[in-house]
Computed example of a mutant assay.
Amino acid sequence: MTDYVDGYCERVAPGLWGEPLDSLSNLAFLVAAVLVWRLAAGNRVGRLLAGLIGLVFVASTVFHLLATRWAAVADSAAILVFMLVYVVVFVREYWSRRFAWVAAPVFLALTFGTALLGGGLYLSALIGLGVFAAVLAFTRDAYWTHYAIAGAIFALSLSLRTLDRDVCAYVPVGTHFLWHLLNGLVLYLVSRTVIRKICP
């Protein structure tokens, strides 16, 4: 678990400061966490989401500083926990409190399924945002546009993450730092949307 991980353009050797842009761009998650915490204004769900975004900030920063296998697992786990909690919150607030708990295992199954098919950990999140937008549009809920916008931003973000290793020869720092910046925005947008739903 302490094996060295060299997965991004910016990192060319082991070392604590081997990915300065990838490390510093994680501040986008910290900013998102602070803004969501303030927006929550004491609401427990909002503050839970803010805390989980803060956890993503810590885990991702540690990973890009240390570049070890265990840190990579912690990074992915923090993101997965946020996604699982969020789908439960979404179902609870927009559909049914009684069946909200079902959302987590269903989404987890989708995530493992898409990962096995080569879609990685994050394709399920893109699918989820599309489903959220479609369901709300079908029920004529005005919040569908919020999820459509977040989905479009995440699609761009995921594309930039995927392209990182392919553009190394042209962009030595890669594009992974843009994944962080855009994802900080996505986490803020989806958290703000559900907080506004809870506390209109």
Rank of each mutant, 00 (worst) to 15 (best):
197 K>I: 12
122 Y>G: 00
69 R>E: 14
77 A>Y: 05
79 I>H: 03
109 A>H: 05
59 A>C: 01
128 G>R: 03
97 R>N: 10
36 V>H: 02
102 V>F: 03
142 A>V: 11
19 E>V: 01
42 G>L: 08
25 S>M: 09
5 V>D: 02
91 V>T: 10
130 G>M: 12
180 H>P: 04
195 I>P: 10
198 I>E: 13
150 A>G: 05
33 A>W: 08
108 L>H: 07
15 G>T: 06
13 A>C: 05
100 A>T: 13
128 G>E: 13
33 A>D: 04
72 A>R: 14
89 V>E: 10
6 D>Y: 08
25 S>A: 08
37 W>L: 09
125 A>H: 11
160 L>S: 00
195 I>N: 09
88 V>H: 15
9 C>N: 07
133 A>W: 13
120 G>A: 08
9 C>I: 01
55 L>V: 11
184 G>Q: 04
102 V>L: 13
55 L>N: 06
57 F>Q: 08
145 T>L: 09
60 S>Q: 00
67 A>H: 12
200 P>G: 13
68 T>K: 06
100 A>N: 07
171 V>L: 15
184 G>R: 00
107 F>S: 11
167 V>G: 02
97 R>D: 12
7 G>Q: 08
175 T>H: 05
160 L>G: 03
130 G>F: 09
184 G>M: 06
51 G>V: 04
79 I>G: 12
128 G>F: 15
124 S>C: 01
181 L>N: 02
50 A>L: 08
82 F>A: 00
27 L>T: 11
113 G>R: 01
138 F>S: 08
93 E>T: 14
97 R>T: 14
108 L>I: 04
